[in-house]
Design a binder for these strands. Sequence first.
DNA 1: TGGGATGCTGATACCGGTATCACGCGGAGG
DNA 2: CCTCCGCGTGATACCGGTATCAGCATCCCA
Lengths: 372, 372
Amino acid sequence: MPADRSQGGRPTISEVAAEAGVGRATAARTLGGYGYVSPELRERVLAAAEKLGYRTNALARSMSTGVSHTLGVILADIGNPFFAGVMRGISDASRARGFDTIVLSTYERLDEEVAATDVLIDKRVDGVIIASAAVGRDEVKHIRAAMGRGIPIVLVDRAVTPLDLDTVVIDNRGAAREAVEVMISAGHRRIGFVWGPSSVSTPVTRRALLETARNVWTDGERLRGYLDALDDARIPLDPELVMTGPKTEEWATQEVARMLALPDRVTALFCTETDAVTGALRAVRAAGLSCPRDISLIGFDDSAWAAVMEPPLTMIEQPVRQLGAKAAEVLLDVLDGGEPRHEVHTLSSRLITRASVAPPGKGTFYSQQSKP
Amino acid sequence: MPADRSQGGRPTISEVAAEAGVGRATAARTLGGYGYVSPELRERVLAAAEKLGYRTNALARSMSTGVSHTLGVILADIGNPFFAGVMRGISDASRARGFDTIVLSTYERLDEEVAATDVLIDKRVDGVIIASAAVGRDEVKHIRAAMGRGIPIVLVDRAVTPLDLDTVVIDNRGAAREAVEVMISAGHRRIGFVWGPSSVSTPVTRRALLETARNVWTDGERLRGYLDALDDARIPLDPELVMTGPKTEEWATQEVARMLALPDRVTALFCTETDAVTGALRAVRAAGLSCPRDISLIGFDDSAWAAVMEPPLTMIEQPVRQLGAKAAEVLLDVLDGGEPRHEVHTLSSRLITRASVAPPGKGTFYSQQSKP
DNA sequence: TGGGATGCTGATACCGGTATCACGCGGAGG
DNA sequence: CCTCCGCGTGATACCGGTATCAGCATCCCA
């Protein structure tokens, strides 16, 4: 006997059929909206269903059709406004096409990501959208396994190089480069990179930085963009100006404080995430400096707050919802029978210029005689 | 024949049994972890499962057990940081107890809420958590229907008075009252209420305000708290100081601008949501006024940004994740066989005092000779 | 008026698990 | 030595849908 679930008023198709005085198949055809049923019987079935308050059991339907009309979504953290926005895009787009979503957060832990994939496979979702923390060849086994089971997968926000999958991202590298270029053309040469490489052994080399930045794809890309801009302007990388360690607001404050205390201190800060921005701002305030007079700043992820800051902050705006919506769309298209294109869809971000960048001020330790 | 789903490597329990050379039931007992199986056969089954890459079909299991280990969550907007935080709490707490979650957003539309409830019933979730937009007796039919089907339901963030359900909220009224009291004791008497009643016919009466504020429970409670504080201080309600109309940042800016242009203008603003805060701040800036010299401000929903504003903003912090976690916990407890207690769990919020409240400044139109 | 085509309906075999129960086997007791 | 009991195992009937197909009724036409 199945477990004791009080069947409190959950009539089955058989009961509806009995009530209507027709065969089970006829009731099923009517309620399922397939096959033919004469208007008269259809009417009787509908009436019976209405009377009994019949609701079709989606589980049973999925069992038999093999389709669950459910998408799985694996994100770093649903509580993070960025991912919440992405999720909203996914949610809206899939709901519009009759799909619901199961969300799982990984907190950037690979084991959680693997577990999440398993859960979704078990629950027989029709497709999966992942913002993966995986990077190396040996970290993508779970994704390969899911693909092997024939589950369509779309990557969002983060590309995973060893995988040939549809991917929806923004041009993180280009966006970072543009932001840093803006600072450089304002005259800055001591530009801090806040947030990113999560841990690194000192002394820090360029290679080591890029190595650990691989932890999360976006971080690596943004670091690369920062380096691109530096390279173009022939400004040598100073590892002291790159934050390492845990990616928390508190640590960002510490690191920026350190960069501010350097003999040849930073005059501009490039922050790769919103918590990095607030963390940096705290350090700037604590040092008694003011933005943009003493310190210029540009950060990733615009928000309503950034616009009402004093000064209004120049920020990089990501098309958060579209990121999610596009990912869902691509996935649903292959579920609708379309061929997976395995291409990278790059949505465009936008640098919103406000007032947090100015030429490096006087009264700073900035030395004018750096190499040309 | 079931639809053509390429069964690419999704072995069933029968195939595992065949591979292991045992009966289906024995394989099922081993893999399902119930009943007895001799160590020897168990070993063979496990090996076969491993070899074939067997994963149990959660759908089939749910069909037969009647339990899906899935919770349904209905929120106003998963893209809103507040609800994202609540969702994270729900998600973490349920995952810790083996449950996954399907999230649906309603955007405060009752029809969406009803549709969402239906979806969740159809998908046979084991329980539902709702931040409902429903208020009146005739607006809760869908919830009653779900209850009638024996689905445990817990309300989060918003109470629904006509329903006797477990409910997890904060003391919105008390929190609002406290915030307004702080402003009053700083000397303010012209205090604006930003965000809330969504539409109202002019002339606006106290009754009409409370009537429309019923749209969303939290709005109503916060308005009541505002009135409480006013009443205690014997400050008459001036409807001109209560924002009405659409709840958008832009409209908040407009409304605050209006209140600022009043002959006897506001000297303090109480904002019931974070977008209301940023909207209000925009208007304050545009009017060339400064906070807290000319205008004091307190808002709901603290964030990292509020702390780095100039000045740092005094805000009400809600225990966002705990709100979700507690709701999930209560729900899971009844799923574990506990009796529903039908009680209201009130978590405590906290007024974080920073620097956005000061006595009404000179140079304002504030009249000292209001009634005592 | 008989034969075939066509139209509707209801039996029934799935889907992949869970849970009950009957059966066969070996050991203990009479 | 036979019976009874217990244990481990495999058959099998569910869960609630979908989808196939047989079968009966009707209709058309020769």
